[in-house]
Amino acid sequence: MAGGAGTAGVEREFEALGARVRLHARCVDCGHRTGVGADLPVILASVVKVPLVLEFARQAAYGQLDPAERVVVRRGDRLGGTGTAGCWDDVEMSLRDLALLMMSVSDNTAADLLFRRVGVDTVRLLVRELGLTATRIAGSPRTVLEKVLAEVGAADPAAFAAVYPTLSPERIRALPTLDPPRTNSGTARDMTRLLTLIWTDRAGPARACRWVRDLMARQVSWHRLAAAFPEEVAVAAKSGTLPGVRNEIGVVRLPDGGRYAVAVFAETDSLRQRRPDLDAAIGAAGRAAVTELRGCCGRAAGQTPPSVSG
């Protein structure tokens, strides 16, 4: 549905910041929803780690893999960013600790190794099973990076790091990572559907869904969606960031028990990395959507959740 009283001004607020916004929010319990541009394609960036960790948790719950399985993260595995990328030496840890780093600090190498373990095709099948019809899984972080290296003629990540500062803004915006048909992409509506299925234990075994919810609650970064709410409001979220792209999806749980799945995707022509104004706008947009939906539910305790449509 179109934005109502709470979200009517969201587009204008982002336009004033030189950005475009795609927003969708829905009550987890009754399905009432609101949005702005909710069906337009968006770049998932690290938000893709949510379906990835869900597939990992499902395979663990089904006994298809052992989450305690040990993995060595070697220098050649590292993709930059946070987490293991900053380690001097090889690191050995379990698969579930890779999942923790992937979700808490958005470790790209951890995501790549988990994609390798569970299978990219399996994650593609998962999004189809869950009815995320507009979501596209192009590949693991390494696969996406390799497309970029090929695009600019860089032999390896080090060569790309050297050439990147010489690229024009137009050249950067034309890279595969910033083109929805060539990278991991979806829609804001698909992402709130995914969150609703996870929060109602319908995305897989209940223990797998619980595990994903716990991992999302451990995200270290709180300066987007969570920053817009007081401390008594619980927020479990996953952010995603690329040049010109700032995203966050999550579930907001109010003290009265209301639960709201929120997805906010912002794009800007500016490639500046530090945009606290956009981070604050993402949180404000999420808060506006939740405010609009409050009081929508009236769902009796123990009632079967509605089907997740739209």
Rank of each mutant, 00 (worst) to 15 (best):
G4P: 09
A5T: 11
A5L: 13
E15R: 15
E15L: 14
G18Q: 06
R26H: 11
C30N: 07
H32T: 15
L40Q: 14
P51T: 05
A60Y: 02
Y62M: 12
Q64I: 10
P67L: 08
V72F: 10
R75P: 03
G76R: 08
D77I: 02
L79C: 03
C87H: 15
S94T: 14
S94Y: 07
L100V: 15
D107G: 03
D107P: 04
N108I: 01
F115I: 03
V120N: 04
T122A: 15
T122Q: 15
R128S: 13
V148P: 02
G153W: 12
T166Y: 13
T166F: 13
L167I: 07
A174C: 07
L175R: 01
P181K: 09
A188E: 00
A188F: 07
R193K: 15
T200P: 08
A203N: 00
A206D: 00
R207A: 12
A217H: 03
S221F: 14
W222F: 10
P230K: 05
V233I: 09
A236N: 01
G240M: 11
P243T: 01
V245T: 05
R246D: 10
G250V: 01
Y260P: 00
Y260Q: 04
A263Q: 02
V264T: 08
D269E: 15
R272Q: 14
R274H: 14
P276Q: 03
D277S: 09
D279S: 14
D279I: 12
A285I: 08
A288L: 13
C296R: 04
C296K: 05
C297Y: 06
R299Y: 08
A301I: 12
G302P: 04
